[in-house]
Deep mutational scan, measured.
Amino acid sequence: SDFTIRIGDRTLHLKNVSEEILKILEELLRRGIDFEELRKIVEELIK
C-alpha cells in the first residue's frame, strides 16, 4: 500500500509498503524518531 509521512514541513512518500514495514515505521514515529533517521531507515528497507 502507499503511505505518506509528514513531519513538520517535510514529506516522505512510500509506495508498495508492506503492513509489517508500516507497523515498524509507526512504532518509530511513536518513539519520536528524527525525520532524517526515519528517511535513512526507509531507504534501507525499500532497497
Rank of each mutant, 00 (worst) to 15 (best):
L22P: 06
G8W: 02
E36T: 06
K40I: 13
T11Q: 06
K15T: 13
T11Y: 10
I21Y: 09
E44G: 10
L25C: 06
R6L: 15
I46V: 13
V42S: 11
R30A: 13
K23P: 12
T4Y: 11
V17T: 05
I46G: 12
E26K: 12
L12G: 00
K15P: 07
K23S: 13
L28M: 10
D2M: 01
I7M: 06
I46D: 13
R39M: 13
G32D: 14
T11M: 05
L14H: 00
R39T: 15
E20H: 07
E44F: 06
E27W: 02
K40V: 12
V42Q: 02
L28P: 02
S18I: 01
F35D: 05
E20T: 04
I33F: 06
I21Q: 15
R31H: 08
L28S: 09
E20Y: 03
K47N: 14
H13N: 04
D34P: 10
I24D: 12
T4K: 04
I41Q: 10
L22C: 07
L25V: 15
E27M: 06
L38T: 04
G8T: 00
E37G: 09
S18Q: 05
D2G: 05
R30G: 08
I24H: 13
L29T: 08
F3V: 15
S18V: 02
E37C: 03
D34N: 10
L12S: 00
L22S: 11
K23G: 15
L45W: 05
R6I: 15
I24G: 08
R31V: 10
F35Q: 05
I21V: 15
F3M: 14
L45K: 05
R6G: 07
I46N: 14
E44Y: 05
S18G: 06
L28H: 15
D9Q: 05
E36N: 08
I33D: 08
K40T: 13
K40F: 11
K40A: 13
E19V: 12
I5K: 00
I24F: 08
T11S: 06
E44R: 07
I5G: 00
G32R: 00
E44A: 11
T4D: 13
D34A: 11
N16D: 09
